[in-house]
Nucleic acid binder design. Structure first.
Lengths: 126, 126
DNA sequence: CAGCATCCCTCTGGATACTG
DNA sequence: CAGTATCCAGAGGGATGCTG
């Protein structure tokens, strides 16, 4: 049930606001915050693989996610400008989700993170 | 009290294990997991700025962090191979923390994330 | 100074039921 | 099909007190 938990938070006050060159902590923290949520990554990558996705499709492919959480996460990434929600106003309901430009541009960054991970299986312990 | 929360988790099972080219979700999730924790970033960046840091110094500079959490996070990043703990076995106690090679190598990635953030103030909503 | 143990509170996520 | 409202359980973080 708990695959890989990751609780992340950021202060961005303290002296931390000036930690990096100009607020690296705050910036990185914001992005990590947008990725916070058990299914944010799966959702983003799925959208990266498919031009558009429907709620039911997400539910079907990520079988263990609840609809409430899916909607919640979808709303989050939408609010963060990563995903765009398009309602076709049909009956029965037809809604599609797509990556926005910002969402697409985030992928290279995530892939860079992935490369880091691949280069450091156990974090590099060296 | 709550500056920027970020709850993040990853499934890495489901079909999600194959989401990206070969498990992008799992890889990215792992890294984000290592950065999960309200003070992980501040700690890492502080260490990036200073060759070494002592507990008391962290406590002093990140005034609102509790010692319990500091130790907890320090243990986490140490376990993840990002930070190295060096005990001088002195009296009074003298312990120093430094970024490991893996820790240093993570920084460029974090800076890339920061750049993304700088380029997308509101996530780019375009 | 560095670290551990305890109690408590909040946030997030999951299960379920219901609406349009 | 898409989404909302409740209730509930678990993880993480904060405050405080104590040890070597």
């Amino acid at each position: 049930m708990n695959d890989a938990i990751t609780h992340f938070k950021v202060p961005m006050n303290e002296g931390s606001a000036c930690l990096g060159p100009d607020g690296s902590v705050a910036h990185v923290g914001r992005v990590l915050g947008m990725l916070s949520g058990r299914w944010k990554l799966p959702i983003l990558f799925r959208l990266f693989a498919s031009p558009s996705m429907r709620s039911s499709q997400f539910l079907r492919e990520m079988s263990s996610i609840s609809q409430k959480v899916l909607t919640q996460h979808l709303r989050d990434v939408e609010a963060d400008g990563l995903v765009e929600r398009r309602d076709f106003h049909e009956q029965p309901p037809h809604v599609e989700y797509r990556l926005t430009r910002a969402g697409h541009e985030l992928m290279p960054v995530l892939l860079a993170v992935r490369e880091y991970s691949r280069s450091h299986p156990t974090a590099g312990q060296g």
